[in-house]
């Protein structure tokens, strides 16, 4: 199990390095996927097959794909790539690199102060499930709250605001999160809500 670990570790490090230094966002994301996959391998070598599977399915399969979708939706084009190149000068990364290196050193120092462990065993899905439905039950429920909040928040925040007429009708006092003074926005919300139901919201296009 040692050799796969180190191979995967090397791949992970290199892929992450590429992920953060590419100028093209899609390239960066693809490198991120590689890194994630190698991390999954590492999880497996560490005796956590369930985690490895989840890593691939959720992280690489959902999160990074979502990121990819948004990147492609924004459709930045070639000039963005060129711009990115100009932004990444030495002056920009040298100090963060030093900072990160300092942190790394500190972590290594901390970690090396402990004696190596003796045991190494595989923790299977069964055990994880038992733990989830046992002591961590409340946490699971809260995590589900989190997910609902995430869904609603993402939906709400990602909506396009229609520039309606200002003032005018005192619209329905929509119970908006963080109320706005202009009645137009409240009308907005109703329209948007109606729009969603009717499938009116158009992604992309000029604002």
């Amino acid at each position: 199990m040692v050799v796969p670990f180190f191979v995967a570790a090397t791949i992970a490090v290199i892929a992450t390095l590429f992920a953060i230094t590419r100028t093209n966002a899609v390239h960066s994301l693809l490198n991120l996927i590689v890194a994630i996959l190698s991390l999954a391998v590492i999880f497996y070598t560490l005796g956590a097959p369930f985690a490895a599977a989840l890593e691939v399915i959720v992280y690489a399969g959902a999160i990074v794909v979502l990121l990819l979708f948004v990147v492609m939706m924004l459709n930045l084009g070639r000039q963005a790539v060129a711009e990115e190149r100009t932004l990444l000068t030495t002056r920009v990364w040298i100090l963060p690199a030093l900072l990160a290196a300092a942190l790394l050193v500190e972590l290594v120092v901390l970690l090396s102060a402990r004696a190596p462990a003796a045991r190494n065993s595989i923790v299977g899905p069964t055990e994880v499930g038992v733990a989830l439905f046992g002591p961590y039950l409340v946490a699971v429920e809260i995590a589900s709250f989190l997910l609902i909040a995430g869904i609603v928040g993402a939906f709400h925040l990602g909506r396009r605001l229609r520039p309606g007429s200002q003032g005018g009708q005192a619209g329905a006092p929509g119970a908006a999160v963080g109320g706005t003074p202009a009645g137009g926005v409240a009308r907005e919300r109703r329209q948007a809500a109606a729009g969603v139901l009717l499938g009116e919201d158009h992604p992309g296009g000029a604002e």
């Binding site: 963060p96 900072l99 990160a100 300092a102 942190l103 500190e106 972590l107 120092v109 901390l110």
Partner: peptide, 16 residues
């Protein structure tokens, strides 16, 4: 973010 990172590094350094 840089401030955050710097603070984290300093805090961990203090611990170490």
């Amino acid at each position: 973010l840089a401030g955050l990172a710097l603070g984290a590094v300093v805090a961990v350094g203090l611990v170490v």
